[in-house]
Nucleic acid binder design. Structure first.
Length: 526
RNA sequence: GGCGGAGUAGCUCAGUUGGUUAGAGCAGUGGAAUCAUAAUCCAUUUGUCGGGGGUUCAAAUCCCUCCUCCGCUACCA
């Protein structure tokens, strides 16, 4: 029986164009999705945009368009980003869609039926500028324009005592069950540092959550309270269910829920690790198996911000260095779960060293010799020497065992390191065997050596394919590997090589899969 | 302020039940080779393991203290 696997990214808030963080999350999720497919699972991969909320409404007004128009325009940009980064999602969800409103109202109603929703007043010091309520003890003393002493928000903006009618969710009721969840499922929140933070937060006591707003109307209407729209997180989190057809009983719900992993940025851990499971518990829906919070990307070690003027457009990087180069760099160089630093120089460095020089050139030198010296013919039957078998066994272990184990545990950089050791072993083997010398002394042996590396290349290409899908496909095409033989199950097929070798397949003059890169100078905007 | 994490070669990081000359990759340097994308292979330099103090036969690893950086500390998303 085939296992199912459901992975989601957070849905992006499209009040601005996609940035490198969005690209990173999409790429990481895509690598996981492709890896799971390679492992033989039925994968459902969902991403999308979170289009409601005050900020979208404000941004639309600022631009003189309706929120729906803005959402259309911006979500198109996110879809375009996914497409250019080769993101293999099954569903791109938009929270403004009709089915999502229905799903959000259904989960809301389920929470009402459970007795977890009540109407109350939300009172506090509100800053219009910050759009946030503050506690008395958070406020600072300040002076207004007339020299009067006034209370200000921590950001120094004006606050006023405000009261708003709001629906509340009985979050406090779920404190103990949440803690039990974290203890019984240590991997529910990853990495561990995030789990510790969440544990402390919940142990510190939970207050009920205000979950509706009356101050604007760009959102999902609360059932029975048309003047209220849902607090965006109730609606946003529900997208993970909407995409499977909730609330209707459907095959997708049966097959894919609960999700295997919600991949998110570390800044929204609490919403996913506290509120979301509490909502689901209340609605009697199964809980996702894991919430994985990845880190942030820093531009040369600096946080990116509009004011610092160092925001990097993801598509520009993909355009400058290639989609697969960007994907490889992010998965290889950033320890998954930690923050990571990037720069054009580092990307070029890593990609040239690993992909162009080590791996790409290995393929190029091998296929080139096969083409020139053996007319592209593969060898059958194949009589390998001890060194050949030893190499293959090492490569098979790295590609079929080490890398998959690391990837399954979300340790992508470690998995890629194991793969790189295999690549290096192949280059080492080529140098030791020196097929160019054998060409004069023992052409038969030369052929065996080249075919041995050829066989290793298939392992290497398949294993790394989730990270660099287009390039891996390019190489597998050159190797003549059938498209239905490109998964981990094919590693167990003893006859794969015999089938190609005994066919009339010939290795053609190879085309470089990873050209060397050079740093593209940033355009001067002045 | 409270709680938590981190500070190891130029860069990114491994490395704790305390134990021989502290490791890897990249970058650098020297050499070999010439099939290949001036790619590859071999060898190799550099470290007060954040500062100071302590425990111990022995500490990057345990304790104390100080410095620096980061995260969390609820309703923008």
């Amino acid at each position: 029986m085939t296992e199912n696997f459901y992975i989601t990214t957070a849905i992006s808030y499209p009040n601005g164009p996609p940035h490198i963080g969005h690209a990173y999350e999409a790429i990481a999720a895509d690598v996981i999705a492709r890896f799971q497919r390679l492992s033989g699972r039925n994968v459902r991969f969902q991403t999308g945009t979170d289009e409601h909320g005050l900020k979208m409404a404000q941004k639309a007004e600022e631009l003189g368009v309706t929120p729906a128009q803005l959402a259309n325009e911006m979500s198109a940009q996110f879809i375009a980003m996914c497409d250019s980064l080769n993101i293999s999602y099954e569903r791109f969800i938009r929270t403004s869609e009709e089915d999502h409103h229905r799903a959000s109202q259904a989960i809301w109603q389920a929470m009402v039926d459970k007795g977890d929703m009540y109407l109350d007043r939300y009172e506090g010091w509100y800053s219009v500028r910050d759009e946030a309520f503050y506690n008395e003890d958070e406020l600072i003393e300040g002076v207004d324009s007339e020299g009067q002493s006034v209370k200000l928000s921590p950001q120094g903006t004006a606050v006023e005592w405000t009261a708003e009618e709001s629906w509340f969710f009985r979050l406090s009721k779920y404190q103990d069950r949440l803690i039990a969840l974290y203890i019984e499922n240590p991997n529910f929140i990853a990495p561990e540092s995030r789990r510790n933070e969440v544990m402390k937060f919940v142990e510190g006591g939970l207050r009920d959550l205000s979950v509706s707003r009356t101050s604007f109307d760009w959102g999902v209407k609360v059932p029975g309270s048309p003047e209220h729209v849902m607090y965006v997180w109730v609606d946003a989190l529900t997208n993970y269910l909407t995409g499977l057809g909730y609330p209707d009983p459907s095959d997708d719900m049966a097959n894919y829920w609960p999700a295997n992993v919600h991949l998110i940025g570390k800044d929204i851990t609490r919403f996913h690790a506290v509120y979301w499971p509490a909502f689901l518990m209340s609605a009697d829906i199964a809980l996702p198996k894991q919430v994985f919070a990845h880190g942030f990307l820093l531009n040369k070690g600096e946080k990116m911000s509009k004011s610092a003027g160092n925001v990097v457009a993801p598509l520009q990087l993909a355009e400058d260095y290639g989609v697969d180069s960007l994907r490889y760099f992010l998965m290889r160089e950033v320890i998954f779960g930690n923050d990571g630093s990037f720069s054009a120089e580092t990307i070029v460095n890593i990609v040239n060293a690993d992909l162009a020089n080590s791996f790409g050139n290995l393929a190029q030198r091998t296929l080139s010799m096969l083409f020139k010296n053996c007319d592209g013919k593969l060898l059958w039957p194949l009589q390998q020497a001890e060194a050949d078998i030893a190499l293959e066994s090492k490569i098979a272990s790295a590609c079929a065992s080490e890398l998959p184990q690391e990837f399954a545990a979300m340790r992508f950089s470690q998995g890629i390191e194991a793969w790189l050791r295999a690549v290096n072993a192949c280059n080492q083997y080529v140098d030791e065997q020196a097929p160019w010398a054998l060409k004069k002394t023992d052409p038969e042996r030369m052929h065996v050596v080249l075919v041995t590396v050829y066989r290793c290349l298939r392992y290497l290409a398949l294993a790394i394919s989730p990270v660099v899908p287009a390039s891996a496909t390019h190489l597998l095409d050159q190797l003549g590997v059938a498209t239905d033989q490109r998964d981990f199950a094919a590693f167990d097929d003893e006859n794969w090589y015999a089938n190609i070798a005994q066919s009339d397949y010939l290795v053609a003059k190879p085309v470089a899969i990873f050209p060397r890169q050079e740093v593209v100078q940033a355009k001067d905007n002045s």
